[in-house]
């Protein structure tokens, strides 16, 4: 069973064909490396999956059910979470507050609803433990390393019981050691049966974690193969067009 299936997705902006008949299937827990040069259609594809805009034609299926997303919230409700490149995190708040940002749990004291800090801390400690991250719930995010911030962003997706996590260049701006930490987080998600779509320019990162590599070139899907049966050289060729199809 596939957790996400795209069937003949096309997207046009006026005369520009951003996506051309893209079909793709992702299984639960599968890590997919989505690669392509700038302007190849990676962002467009992610935005279609995340519900930012509808495709011009084609179908999206979640767990074999046809869905239509009119706004990002629809996609979120269907179990799709996006970890943005700039992380969408508030530096002045604690890790726990960030994990629960926009979904704060409350308890009632008499007639007033107050934020349940104790629950926020214990639940996010649990999530960090599941991610095997050493992030502490009380710590302020602005004092954290890039890897820990990623852990916070990813814990947010666990909180909502996501089925698919889309990650836009999560390793672009962080140190080598932190990259290893983030790749570990991705493996943890996968171990929990959550599919991850990893958009990245960094070939080594993709080959380290991805089960499958997908290459877009000028809106066309030119490769969809197991990472173990491919090589960075082949993928580079596919991205640039030196190799036509795989």
């Amino acid at each position: 069973m596939n957790v996400l299936e795209l069937k003949n997705i096309s997207k046009r902006y006026g005369a520009i064909q951003a996506l051309d008949n893209v079909s793709l299937a992702i299984a639960p827990g599968e890590v997919v490396g989505l690669m392509g040069d700038n302007g190849a259609g990676k962002s467009t594809l992610v935005k279609v999956i995340a519900g930012n805009f509808a495709p011009t034609s084609g179908d999206i299926l979640i767990s074999e059910q046809k869905v239509e997303f009119h706004k990002p919230l629809d996609a979120q409700k269907a179990g799709i979470e996006v970890v943005y490149q700039d992380l969408a995190i508030c530096n002045n708040l604690s890790a726990a507050s960030n994990v629960f940002l926009g979904r704060e749990p409350t308890r009632k004291i008499g007639p007033i609803k107050v934020v349940d800090y104790a629950f926020m801390r214990s639940k996010s400690a649990e999530l960090f433990a599941r991610l095997k991250s050493e992030t502490r719930p009380r710590d302020l995010v602005h004092k954290m390393s890039g890897g820990q911030r990623q852990a916070v962003a990813i814990a947010r997706t666990l909180l909502s019981d996501a089925k698919i996590v889309l990650m836009d260049e999560p390793t672009a701006a962080i140190s080598v050691r932190q990259v290893a930490e983030v790749l570990n987080l991705i493996r943890q998600l996968s171990d929990h049966g959550i599919a991850v779509v990893l958009i990245s320019h960094r070939m080594p990162d993709v080959f380290e974690v991805a089960d499958k590599v997908v290459v877009l070139r000028r809106g066309e899907l030119v490769a969809d193969k197991k990472a173990s049966q491919s090589s960075p050289e082949e993928i580079t060729g596919l991205i640039t067009g030196a190799i036509e199809h795989a």
């Binding site: 919230l73 943005y84 700039d86 992380l87 969408a88 995190i89 508030c90 530096n91 002045n92 708040l93 507050s97 940002l101 926009g102 979904r103 704060e104 409350t106 007033i112 609803k113 107050v114 934020v115």
Partner: peptide, 28 residues
């Protein structure tokens, strides 16, 4: 004091003040 430090509104106020975009992405 209760509003700022112990209600959802107070949390959101701090979030919006620091990083409005992140707050919006979080559904605030």
């Amino acid at each position: 004091w209760v509003v700022l430090h112990h209600t959802v509104f107070g949390r959101h106020l701090c979030a919006v003040g620091k990083n409005e975009e992140a707050a919006r992405f979080s559904g605030i």
